[in-house]
Computed example of a mutant assay.
Amino acid sequence: MDSPLGIAGNSGIQDVWQWRSYCGQPTILRIEIHTDAARLLETRLPLCRAPRASGTARQTPIAFPATRIADTLEASPETAVTGDVWVAGSEPDGVMLGVSFQTEDRVLLNTLRFVPASGASQADLVTGVRLVTTVEDGRQQ
């Protein structure tokens, strides 16, 4: 029997949330990155509980255009800015999301945020740019 902390029986292998596209009943993590004026990204990731020791296939970061926030990130307004989101770590109660913004020449912001797999969260990545997450149970869809 599993403990509330996700320790499977006596094996000592901990179940953690992982970004996987192939589990039977995923929990869907909805991710939004937006400013007051515009949504930069809205996407959904399937999260599944699995033993930490099982590892996970490396997922390709989700890339999105972010030129609208060039000024906010101290880049010239005509500079092409892109963003990336990825799962950087797996924990028993959620995931660490990596978020970065960059131009062709330099990284403007690279940060990690813990996101619980059990509810909503919000965090300012930088003044005027917000990460919002909500959880949808895949079994209910």
Rank of each mutant, 00 (worst) to 15 (best):
M1I: 10
M1Y: 11
M1P: 12
S3G: 13
P4N: 03
G6W: 05
I7R: 07
I7V: 14
A8G: 02
N10Y: 09
I13G: 03
Q14G: 00
V16M: 02
V16C: 02
W17H: 04
Q18Y: 03
S21P: 03
S21I: 12
Y22Q: 11
C23I: 10
C23G: 05
G24R: 06
G24D: 09
G24I: 08
Q25H: 13
Q25G: 07
P26A: 07
P26S: 09
P26N: 05
T27D: 07
T27N: 08
I28T: 12
I28F: 13
R30T: 15
I31C: 05
E32H: 13
E32T: 13
E32K: 11
I33T: 06
H34I: 09
H34M: 13
D36E: 12
A37Y: 09
A37E: 13
A38S: 12
A38E: 15
L40E: 02
L40H: 05
L40F: 15
E42F: 15
L45E: 02
P46N: 10
P51L: 04
P51A: 09
S54H: 12
S54M: 10
G55D: 03
T56P: 00
R58C: 06
R58D: 07
R58V: 14
A63K: 10
A63G: 07
F64R: 01
A66W: 00
I69Q: 02
A70D: 01
A70T: 05
A70W: 05
A70H: 03
D71C: 09
D71I: 11
L73Q: 00
E74N: 15
E74Y: 14
A75R: 01
S76I: 14
S76E: 11
S76P: 02
E78C: 05
E78L: 14
V81S: 00
T82M: 09
T82A: 07
G83V: 03
G83A: 03
D84F: 14
D84E: 12
V85N: 00
W86V: 01
W86I: 03
G89W: 02
G89M: 02
E91M: 14
E91C: 10
E91V: 13
E91N: 11
E91G: 05
P92W: 05
P92Y: 05
P92F: 07
D93C: 08
G94S: 06
L97E: 01
L97F: 04
L97N: 01
L97H: 01
G98S: 05
G98A: 07
G98H: 01
G98E: 04
V99R: 01
S100Q: 15
T103Q: 02
E104K: 11
E104N: 08
D105C: 08
D105A: 15
R106K: 14
R106S: 14
V107L: 11
V107C: 10
L109I: 13
N110V: 12
T111S: 09
T111P: 00
L112P: 00
R113D: 04
F114E: 00
F114K: 04
V115D: 01
P116R: 08
A117R: 06
A117Y: 07
S118I: 12
G119P: 05
A120T: 14
A120V: 11
Q122E: 15
A123M: 06
D124K: 04
L125A: 02
V126F: 11
R130H: 10
L131E: 00
V132K: 09
T134G: 14
T134K: 06
V135T: 12
D137M: 12
D137A: 11
D137H: 08
G138K: 08
G138Q: 08
R139Y: 06
Q140Y: 10
